[in-house]
C-alpha cells in the first residue's frame, strides 16, 4: 500500500515540475496507476484467490477490481482526449511547452 502512495507521489511530482504537456499527461497516467494499485491492495484478503467461483475457495474482494476496470477505461479516454487537445495546441502555437502558451516569459 505504501508503494502505491509512492507511485501517486511520483506522479504528483511530475505533475508539478514539468513544462512539457505530454509529460504532464504521462504523470497523470502514473498517478492513475498508483490509484489502481491502492484499490487492488485494499481489496486483498489474506489467503484469497482470484474471484472465480469454480470451486469453494476464499476469494479476494471483487468490488475494487470491477471499479478499477471502469477507472482504466476512463483513464484511457482522458489520455486520448488530452493528446488530441495537445495536437491542436501544437498546431496553433508550434510548441508543447506549457509556459510558452502564456507569453513565454514566466518559467514554471
Amino acid at each position: 500500500m505504501n508503494v502505491s502512495i509512492l507511485v501517486v507521489l511520483v506522479g504528483l511530482y511530475g505533475l508539478t515540475n514539468n513544462d512539457n504537456a505530454i509529460k504532464l499527461l504521462m504523470s497523470l497516467s502514473v498517478m492513475g496507476s498508483g490509484v489502481i494499485l491502492l484499490f487492488v491492495t485494499v481489496g486483498y484478503i489474506p489467503g484469497g484467490e482470484a474471484p472465480l467461483m469454480t470451486s469453494h475457495i476464499s476469494t479476494v474482494d471483487p468490488l475494487p477490481h470491477s471499479v478499477m476496470i471502469t477507472f482504466i477505461v476512463i483513464n484511457l479516454a482522458t489520455t486520448a482526449l488530452g493528446l488530441a487537445l495537445i495536437f491542436q495546441l501544437y498546431r496553433r502555437y508550434g510548441t508543447i511547452k506549457v509556459s510558452e502558451y502564456f507569453g513565454g516569459d514566466e518559467k514554471l
Partner: peptide
C-alpha cells in the same frame, strides 16, 4: 477509431508563431 485518428495526424505545425 482513436488509433486511426492519431495515425492520420501530421506532426509538423501548420503555422509557427
Amino acid at each position: 477509431a482513436l488509433f486511426v485518428y492519431f495515425f492520420k495526424q501530421e506532426v509538423e505545425p501548420s503555422s509557427t508563431e
